[in-house]
Structure formats: structure tokens, C-alpha cells
Simulated assay, not measured.
Amino acid sequence: MRPSKRDELVREALKVFYRGGFHATGMDALVAATGISKTTMFKHFSSKEELILAVLRLRDENFRNWIIRRVEERASSPRGRLLALFDVLAEWFEQPDFRGCMFIKASGEYQDPDHPIHAQSAEHKRLLFKYFDAVARQAGAKRPGDLARQLLLLKEGSIIAKHMGYEVDPAGDAKAAARTLLEDALGPEAEAA
């Protein structure tokens, strides 16, 4: 089934905003990059911010599906999945189009916590927390919410370190720190028999 013009616009706008940011990318740049006229854009979205919200929803769906699928492909045990997060991040960091986290960028550009774009960005992070909290519970963590929050802080820090280019292996460093957190929350990893 051929995607609708609206879906095509959202997919193309995602690429443009991810490369150039939200405030820095004007409607003329979107028209030039997507090949979709302003008239068509405004037919589907009443404002640039409405388009940004649609882009963030698509990015959230795509990214969460990808990261969860890859984590689950890499490890079968809950403990293994908590560590696999950092291997998956390393995969993402090596992609040639890596430009950091779109949600960190969006919340930085739309700083009012009540702004819909900021709120949509926070929702993405909340949904990732919900998944990793559930995995921490499956792993038997003493305080699964604390463990999930701590692991996600390591995740966010490694994304920023990679994006800014000041660490050689931020995902690996975060994974080493995560091992310490897991030992505290779950006890030492059992030796393979």
C-alpha cells in the first residue's frame, strides 16, 4: 500500500529536523528538502509545531520498536536485556546518520514543560522507562524503578557524550557502569555451568 502524502511528509520532515534541528529548519527548508509544497504541508498540518509533533510521534514509535526489538534479539534473560541496551546504543552510535537524540533536542528547543513538543519528548522517555522498569522487575531487582532510572541516566549520558564527541566508547563505558548497578540490584552474575 502506497503511503499517504501526509505520511510521506512526516517521514521526510523527520530526516530534515533530525539533521537540522527544529527552530533552525524553516518551512522553506522543509519544502526544498521534501519536495512538498507549503500549500500541501499546510493542508495536512495547521502549523510547523503540529508537523513537529507528528514527526516526534513517528520517531518515538520507530525508535522504541527498534531499540526494544534489538535488545530482545541480543539477550534472552532480563538481566542480559538490561545490559544489551548499551550494545544496542553502540550499534546506533555507529550509524552514519547518528545525530544524537531527537527528543533531547526537542525538549531543549521547547523548554517549557507544558509545551506539547516538550511533553511529547518527555513521554518518549517515560515509555522507555516503563519498558526497562518491567525488565528490571522480571530480573528480580530489589528496587526496579530505581534501577531502570539509573540505567536510563547512563543511556542518556552516553548519547550526549557520543553526540558531542568527547568520549571514545560512551556505550561501553556506560555498560561497565551498568554492570556495577546490576550487581548491586540483582547480586553477582551467576557463573556459566
Rank of each mutant, 00 (worst) to 15 (best):
K15Y: 13
F17W: 13
G20W: 13
G20E: 11
G20R: 05
G21M: 12
F22H: 04
H23M: 10
H23L: 15
H23C: 03
A24G: 06
A24Q: 12
T25G: 03
G26L: 11
G26M: 08
G26F: 13
D28I: 07
A29N: 07
L30H: 12
L30C: 06
L30S: 09
L30R: 05
V31Q: 11
A32V: 11
A33G: 05
T34I: 14
T34R: 00
K38Q: 14
K38E: 15
T39E: 02
T40Q: 02
F42A: 01
F42G: 00
F42I: 03
K43M: 03
K43S: 09
H44D: 14
H44I: 02
H44R: 03
F45P: 06
K48E: 14
K48V: 14
E49S: 03
L51K: 02
L51V: 10
I52V: 04
I52E: 07
I52C: 08
L53V: 04
A54E: 11
V55Y: 14
V55I: 06
V55D: 08
V55H: 12
L56A: 10
R57M: 11
L58Y: 07
R59M: 12
D60A: 08
D60I: 10
E61F: 00
N62D: 10
F63W: 09
N65C: 02
W66D: 04
I67V: 13
I67H: 01
I68Q: 09
R69W: 12
R69M: 14
V71M: 02
V71Y: 09
E72D: 02
E72R: 03
E72T: 08
A75I: 00
S76R: 02
S76H: 05
S77Q: 01
S77M: 06
R79N: 13
R81A: 11
L83N: 04
A84Q: 08
A84M: 09
A84C: 07
L85T: 11
L85N: 08
L85E: 13
D87V: 00
A90H: 05
Q95E: 14
D97F: 01
R99Y: 09
G100A: 06
C101H: 09
M102I: 15
M102E: 13
F103H: 09
I104Q: 12
I104W: 15
K105M: 14
